[in-house]
Amino acid sequence: MNGVLNILKPPAMTSSDVVSHLRRILGQKKIGHTGTLDPGAAGVLPICVGRATKIADYIMRGDKEYIAEITFGIETDTQDSYGTSLRRCECNITRQAVETVLPEFTGKLFQKPPMYSAVKHEGKKLYQLARKGITIEKPPREVYIRQIDILGGQINKFLLKIRCSKGTYIRTLCADMGEALHCCAYTSFLLRTETCGFLVEDAYTLPEIEMMVQMGTLASALYSMEEALSFLKSLHCEKRLYPFLTTGTPIDLTKTKLELQPDVDYAVFCGGELIGIGKKIGDKLKIISMLKELGGASGETKTADTK
């Protein structure tokens, strides 16, 4: 079984828990998720199965969309409702006040990873250290907030829709918005509604997946690797290049009609089949991630004579 499942992760379950659960349901070990979603959050969690685990990193790079509730006046150690309250402050934050600081939080930002996160320090996850009372200062990371919309709310409590790059901590964003308004704030609700084109309205719960396995209808929920990579540019190669592409042999672009841009990942097809993900390196097309299952040996040390 090879493909991607769009899973609706429930709150109070880690992303790794979802993977473990699916390994049991599907009876398959080669399964991986496409980026950690906070245990307290719910929403879209694409799960790669079989050879599709090779494309997890590419899906992970895509934009995310969240619905988040920000509550002003309370600070917690985890920056969400699952943490311990650290302090409270008297405030009267209006929608207009929130709107005035939104420009500060769109575009390129630098965020410090929160202590309660899966970021690692010397092989240990930060949340594991935080539970022991150890605090580590990690350098800020660059993220990009494409858009923030206020969907509604009253004084001190607002529902936001946020579209952002990978690696964005919504909890930290909300806490920082509190500081910008000279108050404290935490994320009281978080739902991920999209990851790289996978939408929450199309997601399946774990009980639904288990029922589909029992009924033999799981294939209807499985996205093919071609579908999952539809966000990449497609490159369709001539059939004569098939033996070179499928053995990993770099293709001399000067001897083909192919036109590639540098620093762009392509979903490479040949003979109607997805071969892998390729990239222009110098004047060669190189398959950097082979997705087609093959029995032949790799010819990475040669360059194809495509005359």
Rank of each mutant, 00 (worst) to 15 (best):
G3T: 01
L8Q: 12
P11T: 08
A12E: 14
A12P: 00
A12D: 14
S15T: 07
S16P: 01
V19S: 05
R24L: 09
I25M: 08
G43T: 04
G50H: 11
T53K: 04
I55Q: 03
Y58Q: 10
M60F: 13
E75D: 11
Y82N: 12
G83F: 02
N92L: 11
E99A: 14
T100P: 01
E104I: 06
G107K: 09
Q111N: 10
P114C: 10
M115Q: 15
M115D: 04
Y116G: 02
S117E: 08
V119Y: 13
K120T: 15
K120P: 07
L126I: 06
P139V: 10
R141Y: 09
E142C: 08
E142F: 06
Y144N: 15
Q154F: 06
I155S: 12
F158Y: 15
L159G: 02
L160Q: 09
L160E: 04
I162W: 09
R163M: 06
K166D: 05
Y169I: 05
Y169E: 07
R171T: 04
M177C: 03
L181E: 04
Y186C: 01
S188I: 05
S188K: 05
F189E: 08
V200K: 08
T205H: 07
T205E: 07
E208F: 07
E208L: 07
I209C: 08
M211L: 14
M211N: 13
M211W: 10
M212Q: 14
M215K: 15
C237G: 08
K239C: 05
R240I: 13
L245T: 00
T246K: 11
T254G: 13
E259T: 15
C270K: 01
G271V: 12
G272S: 10
D283W: 06
I288M: 08
A297F: 13
